[in-house]
Amino acid sequence: MTTSIVTPGAAPEPEAPVHVTQVTESVSEAKLVFQRFIHHKAAMIALVVLLAILVFALTSIGAFGFHGWWPLSYATTGPVIDGGKPTLHFSLSPLSFSAGEHPFGQDDLGRDYFAIVMRGCQQSLLIAVTMGLTGTVVGVIIGSIAGYFRGWVEAVLMRLTDVVLTLPTLVVAAFIGRRIGSLGVVPLGLFLGLVSWTSLARMVRGQFLSLREKEFVEAARSVGAGPFRIIFRHILPNSVGIIIVNATLSIASAIILEAALSFLGFGVKPPDTSLGQVIGLYRQAMDTRPWLFWWPGLLIVAIALTVNFIGDGLRDAFDPQQDRG
């Protein structure tokens, strides 16, 4: 009696499962991440929406010295027409859309609200990105030093982080904002970033702690690689995913922080504007002139939401979970 290898079945029918074969093509991990991100529907939609907002905000009233296509400026006052109501009309039947002269309405000094909101959008985005990036850089530096060198260096830095964590970010930001707010948007963003590094520092430190025990780091050490090479060539490149995801999410929370800050009056000061500041100014007008509250608010939510979704998409792209059925 003989036994033999079972030959694979007949040609597979449509529903029959396929055999998995080893495909070897040279695909770098960055490419894989990129492909996964593209397939994340929510993140892609969010990306498109965010880009649309960005383009709109930048081109409508112009930026960096370029003129936009929107005729009105955010600074010129004028007569208040029709109580400042928005002239935006949209109806489904008949299908019609007209922007009118003041699609977002006017404020109590007759300035065009659309222009104000667009300007506010630009400023808020600028602060948020500056703050997010600064915070990320500081956080990565502190986290790396703490995570690599361990010992008393780590202990000191972590205790420092603990102390900073006892102060709510908004509170610290308020202190800073009160002093710096009038200096302009970019300085404000920079200084705010300098005090918002705690979560990223902790995360990077965690990454360092886990990666330094990995064999490839030990292999590099055994060959005589110095701290710099290990940090910059081995550990950080493998933390890029986490850092990018957290940087994105911190931009989202930066937008919200700045809005709250300016709302309270400790952020951007007039004549500069930002979305939060505008809402703060017209907070009481909610009943009578709701458009003064709604438009900037919607934009804040839209920007924060899209950035959050993008961050989530990035997280899934860098660290995919189990494939679903």
């Binding site: 991990e29 990995k214 064999e215 490839f216 030990e218 292999a219 590099a220 055994s222 060959v223 005589g224 690689a225 090479r229 060539r233 081995h234 490149p237 493998n238 890029v240």
Partner: peptide, 26 residues
């Protein structure tokens, strides 16, 4: 030294050539 876990002993972000060449470079 050669390590036990082949999955963890190579830097995922470096090509094979770079990993092998690192000692030579240094």
């Amino acid at each position: 030294i050669v390590f036990q876990d082949p999955a963890a002993s190579l830097n995922p972000r470096m090509t094979i050539g770079e990993s092998i060449g690192e000692p030579i470079l240094l």
